[in-house]
Amino acid sequence: MTKTKEELLDILSRFQLDEKVVSAEPFGNGHINDTLKVTNEKGEIKYVLQRINHLIFTNVEMLQNNIHTVTSHIRKKLEARGEKDIDRKVLTFLPTKEGKLYYFDGDSYWRVCLFIPRSKSFEEVTPELSYEAGKAFGDFQSMLADLPEGAIGETIPNFHNMEFRLEQFHDAVKTNAAGRLDEVKDLIREIEKRADAMCIQERLYREGKLKKRTNHCDTKVNNIMFDESGKVLCVIDLDTVMPGFVLSDIGDFIRTGANTGAEDDENLNNVNVNMDIFRAYTRGYMETAKSFLTPQEIKLLPYGGRLLTYMQTVRFLTDYINGDTYYKIHSPKHNLIRTKAQFKLLQSLEEHATEMDEFMNQYLN
């Protein structure tokens, strides 16, 4: 962060703040945007200032319109339910003095939201937290289920489009930019073997059997704020909220939260699916999401875990073949290590597929 304190305070002065602020300091451990906590004269954190990463989110206007549409819609739903303390249950972004949803300083894009007091987030995933997370993301989707089509746009086009990810993969294999193909022939074979089965959602969509919904697309426990007693307050990190298939949101949680190892675990014996976490998340999710899901979607939910894990395997391997141009790496083989760890998780999910499908059947009967 290269801005001086004076420059940051000048940026803050462009927004409709309710009180005088005196400092903005780095906050949290997000990987995409730069986040700062903003304090008032009493030293209380009142706002969160973010510099938007416009290399990833190239259409900032659409991004901020999406977030405004989604948070306004959720706020109305919470009001209709008679909820109290709504400012802690949905993010509140403040406009600039010109009424815009962001401020551009000639170099970077900035936004400000209210800080949620008496809140916390968790990094560790347990069955108890997974159940609460399932309920939270299911409720989030449920409140947005009646958003009209076209109300929000794709902030990262084709983000969870498997056909598109396979096109990128095939281009990488054809070009062999880093001369690494011989080393990964076995993995390429495994990916090709599953390619057709992993494009089900795009085919069903074209046949009119699967609809696009408003998804979060980054369903991790640390994207939920909890109150002092461990009750869910709200879902945060809304940059990737966009139209897609419900399989994305349950699938990404299974891929990240139900993995007994690390995403880049070199010891593949560590990597398996934690069925307790799968069951807990799914139970919570179905409690709040079942009302709007179709039988087709419910049946496919466990497949979502396999799909998102396969997709990430493909993306890591694509990047390795291309010479590591997308993901940050910490060693020359990092993307290959990630690929193998994701593939091991995929194999574990495949081994548990029947058990997962049987668990879902209770919601279909």
Rank of each mutant, 00 (worst) to 15 (best):
R14I: 01
F15Y: 10
Q16W: 02
Q16A: 13
Q16M: 13
K20Y: 06
V22A: 01
V22R: 06
P26F: 07
G30V: 04
N33I: 04
T35Q: 10
L36K: 10
K37P: 00
T39R: 15
N40K: 06
N40Q: 02
E41I: 13
E44V: 15
E44Y: 09
V48R: 01
L49Q: 03
Q50S: 11
I52D: 00
H54N: 14
H54C: 06
H54R: 08
L55C: 02
I56D: 04
I56Q: 09
T58G: 00
T58D: 02
M62D: 13
L63T: 08
H68D: 10
H68N: 14
V70F: 03
S72I: 03
H73A: 15
R75Q: 15
R75H: 13
K76T: 12
K77H: 08
K77A: 14
E79M: 09
A80W: 06
R81P: 04
R81H: 12
E83Y: 14
D85V: 10
I86P: 00
T92Q: 13
L94T: 08
P95Y: 07
P95K: 06
T96P: 01
K97W: 01
G99Q: 11
K100S: 15
F104K: 07
D105P: 10
G106Q: 07
G106V: 05
S108H: 08
S108R: 02
S108C: 11
Y109V: 00
R111A: 04
R111C: 05
C113E: 08
C113Y: 11
F115T: 05
I116Q: 03
S119Y: 05
T126K: 07
E128R: 01
L129F: 04
S130L: 04
